[in-house]
Design a protein around this nucleic acid. Sequence first.
DNA 1: CTGTTAGCGCCTTCAT
DNA 2: ATGAAGGCGCTAACAG
Lengths: 345, 345
Amino acid sequence: MSITMKDIAQIAGVSVNTVSRALNDRPEINEETKRHIKKIAQELNYIPNTIAASLASRKSKTIGLVIPDLCDPFFAMQARGVEDTAKKHGYSVVIINTDEIPQNEHNAITTLYGIRVAGIILTSVFFGMEHIEELQGRQVPLVLLNRYSRQLDTDYVINDHQKGAYIATKHLLNLGHQRIGIILGPDRITSVQDRLSGYLKAMDEAGIKLSKEYVIHGENLKPETGELLAEELMRKEPRPTAIFAYCDSLAIGACAGIRKVGYTIPRDVALVGYDDIPYAAHLEVPLTTIVQPAYKMGRTACEILLKRISSGGEQKTKHIVFEPKLAVRKSCGTSENQSVSQKNN
Amino acid sequence: MSITMKDIAQIAGVSVNTVSRALNDRPEINEETKRHIKKIAQELNYIPNTIAASLASRKSKTIGLVIPDLCDPFFAMQARGVEDTAKKHGYSVVIINTDEIPQNEHNAITTLYGIRVAGIILTSVFFGMEHIEELQGRQVPLVLLNRYSRQLDTDYVINDHQKGAYIATKHLLNLGHQRIGIILGPDRITSVQDRLSGYLKAMDEAGIKLSKEYVIHGENLKPETGELLAEELMRKEPRPTAIFAYCDSLAIGACAGIRKVGYTIPRDVALVGYDDIPYAAHLEVPLTTIVQPAYKMGRTACEILLKRISSGGEQKTKHIVFEPKLAVRKSCGTSENQSVSQKNN
DNA sequence: CTGTTAGCGCCTTCAT
DNA sequence: ATGAAGGCGCTAACAG
């Protein structure tokens, strides 16, 4: 079958163990024999069987990444941040998409534990934390990305969802809008709740009594969903003059939905997104949005995970919170047609 | 540490072997004891150690996906097609990005072989085929995605690159354009060569003597690169009246580049992309492009790979070629300002 | 420094 | 239908 240390050992006339030591650059070995063994391995095109090594050492060199949807550029960038960092440290990453479906997330964790990954990054955003407790019980190093838990003591890397939503809403308020609708993902997602709360806070501070009609949830974060939700919102009476979308993917769909029912951005309705995916700036109407450093967040999450893996779990939990920033583009109108001068809180 | 079959065996008062048979639903076992064992496993929250199983059975349940860049929506969609399909069949997928760098691709293959994946999908598009021969030598099932090899007998799933480029170029020619520039990725990528050749064929048929100045290659497929290349192209004298971009990512960058040097799409220059990523239709100027069914291609590639894995490699190689389609949008102008009536070849 | 002895957790013969 | 023995390829103690 495939060539093994045993083969090399026989050729070199040493024990398997010595081969192992040579190939793993252990200190307790003669430089000479090491070179010799390495040369033979080279010639035979030997590639070590990582899974056998994992089994024997109880140490895996792969990590798991559980993510809602790779097709969403925001998550894709985070995934790259993770993968690049993992690779740099000799780790591979198994990616599993969940489409925000709780059962999928649970299955993903089971699968990853089955492979005995060295650790898991949970980017999916299901509100239930049972899986997580289970993982903790199984001693699997874990980092939450884009979400956190108040009850559980885990590392996490997030953006300040509430603040971001607050800034976005405030921006719209400052432009003079009052009837501001919001389109969101499923209620079970923690960050959906956080961003909603930021929105509510801003509305409340502005003394605006909000109609519940203006807050609507979709089943997922895909553009198609955003389209539907925006249509629905624009058909309310009176219709909103501004919409805040939970994320850019929904916002992109919202653009289409708004257009479909005959309205124009920003003339009839202002739109703000969240994430600042690379396409936001290039849309038909460039999108005003909240910036998150997706790649960096992925990298950070991975670095923390790797640290926790190598530290054997004995270290204080880390909580990294990135600051959201507003990127003003055309989807809320230019300064000429703004009612109030824009103040970036 | 983590609970094993041995633990279950002790509790159930049977041999490890029997546990294995029960949990794997083997036929040669008493229904009664099977139920009993499964119940115990359940209660203990047992999750089998997949890697131990792999080592013993010499069968892995993970496949490798080598991809240029997850952040490119086209590849992301293909990746999802692969992942969904793999998951459905009980496989996990390890994704490795290469950024189109040959050395990265080689490393990726080594890594994947190291974890003894059941098979590999190579979406990266390096022209060298040495790695592939090596894989074949190592008997690793392999499917090429987006590229193919004439010399090597491997499965592949592609879109007809040459034809797609031909259609795109023809579209521009039919609109009356003569000075058509083309911006491409690195020359070592097979599909870059194929699309270039489709473009050249169309130009040749139209009897247009082409200045080599209008054909430019970039180092990668990122929008930033597209921006640079488009700028360069628009500064030629005389400047092109149309640009065909190797892919939508480059095209999106090209939009920015064209704008930067003071020109407007489609008034001053027409633009055609390739891939039809989800954002193409929503751009500042909706992009005319060649449609590829990315998700389906990923799914198909994965299905073929899984078939080859289960067939033990004994089956004829499969070559799937998807037909490219033109999606006409605004980036080449509306019919009013077209010089020639548009004929979709 | 190197070899020997034991596994890692599971699957695969072969017996029974 | 079940058990015992052996091994997958490697690492981890020990010896020496």
